[in-house]
Design a binder for these strands. Sequence first.
DNA 1: AAATCGATTTGCT
DNA 2: GCAAATCGATTTC
Length: 208
Amino acid sequence: MSTIALPKAAHGARPLPREFYLEPTLTVARRLLGQIVVRTLPTGERLSGIIVETEGYLVGDPACHSYRGKTPRNASMFGPPGHAYVYLSYGMHQMLNLVCQDEGVAEAVLVRALEPLEGVETMRSLRGGITNSIQLTNGPGKLAAAIALTRQEDDGVDVTDPKSRLQIIPGQIVPDSEIVDSKRIGITQGADLPWRYYLRGNAYVSRK
DNA sequence: AAATCGATTTGCT
DNA sequence: GCAAATCGATTTC
């Protein structure tokens, strides 16, 4: 079931530095596996989870939102690295992306699934009280709902800032042997590109 | 200006 | 297994 150990020193850890997001975007997508999303609610409560599934979206990639240029929706993708790009999908689901590359190079990693760490009961209520813990965060729209992300509140947030309400902090280093490469999900353009990565055998991955 | 589609999830058949 | 829900961007008339 749960495949990774709970990082012990997660509390008080500094967020991953901005340089982390300057490696090639597909490298960042792989390295984000095992890192930790930390969400601080207005109440001060802390929700967190280990990233177990990601997808890369690159310049020149027809499936990437930046492919047809800058719009109000995708503007944060064109901004500096280490910020969140949160957008509304299908009119109802918020998607969490992390912007990579220098300002002007609009690439990002979509965070597709988390393994919950802290605040599980709060996540459960944010997800309509569902009882199945696996289904709390095993999909991009699900995880965004579970940690109360919205485009209005969280698009553009700096995830490298220790006082930010959304941060990515160091978790585990995951060896390549534990990472499965596969095709991205739910897209029509560039559907054959193997730019989806997930932790082998992890129960919280959206689809094996 | 109107219709269609999408990096999805949920509920009902 | 299929369709609805719903908003922003793209495509079409």
